[in-house]
Structures are given as structure tokens and as C-alpha cells.
Amino acid sequence: MAQAVVFWVCAIGAVAAGLAVFRVDSMARATFALLASFVLAAVPLLLLGLSYLGILVILMMIMEMVVMAVFMIMYMMNPAGLMPMSMVHNKKGSLAISTGTFVVLAVGVLLVDWPQRQGVPPPDVTFALGEALMGSHMLVMLVIGLGLFATIVSAVVLSHPRGRYDRFGDDLRRRPPDDPIPGSVDARSLTRIFGVGR
């Protein structure tokens, strides 16, 4: 009974918060409405007994959406996203896409012949998940992890206008490096960082 109440409160809350994303007129409110929707969608995972995954989703979503808020506001057309603005663009197109997606998913839910449960859940789901990730799927996880990391590093390297010759000079001997934002970790700045005093 209590589980059903929690589920329905979270389900309706998640949809309502999702709708709020497009009804509010501020980028900050839209971001945190989306965050509320994600967090409410994570609670059913806890109801399924997947405590690790549920809390992890909440943790990652909060961090992700806070960083996202910074970027979403930064890229807005009006000055820094500080003014009231509409959250909907291309209304007809996006309405068609979202209705189509909803219909496809809903039809899928109703038509798919869902399999019956076989066996029982393991006593420690977190441990089972860890074993699956670090056992049979280790290779996949490693390749994906390395691939993502390499993508991030190469994207930053390619898009960054300054290279090591800008930082360390033509002979690469300049110390400390010439950075637009100084914060260089070398012996001198380490003493500055740890310099104690008022």
C-alpha cells in the first residue's frame, strides 16, 4: 500500500515537473524542474530494491543538472539567460515528435509480450551488479570508458586555442607557464597555496 502511494506520488510528480519545464519562463527554474523530474523518476528504483542504482541516479542527476544549469544559462540568446523567456521553440515540430515518441513507447508497452520472471533476485543486488560489470562485461565497460575519456580529451585538445608553446615559450623553458588564468602548480604556487596566515 505504502509502496503504491509512493510510486503514484512520484510518477505524477515526475510528469508534472516534466511539464513545468516547458511552462516556466526562466532557464534556472526549467533546469531545476527537470532535476525534480529526474529525482522523482529515480525513487521507483529504490522501490524495486535497487538502492545503489537509485541513490546513484539521484547523485549523478543533481551534479549533472547543476553543471547543466551553468551551461544552459550561458548559451541562452538573451543576456546570460537572465531575462524571462519562453522555453518552447518550433512548437509544431516538437509537438509532432513528442506525440509520436509517446505513441510508439505506449504501444510498445501494451503490445510487447513481457517475459515472466525466472528465478529470484540475488540477496545483494549491488554486489551482483558489481560482479556483472567487473566480470563478464568488464571488456565492454573498459572499452566504453576509454572511448569516452579519449573523446573528451581530444575534443578539449582540438578546441583549445593555446598549446604548450604558448604556455612554456618557444623553447618550452618558461616557468611558471604563461596562462591567461594563473593557477599553475609549481613549487612557488604550492607555497602560496599552503601559505598560512590571515
Binding site: 588564468i181 594563473p182 593557477g183 599553475s184 602548480v185 604556487s189 604550492l190 602560496r192 597555496i193
Partner: peptide, 8 residues
Amino acid sequence: RMDRFAEF
């Protein structure tokens, strides 16, 4: 300063 701390 947070930029110094970032590099650290």
C-alpha cells in the same frame, strides 16, 4: 582562489 585550487 578557486582557479588556483582547480589546478591543485
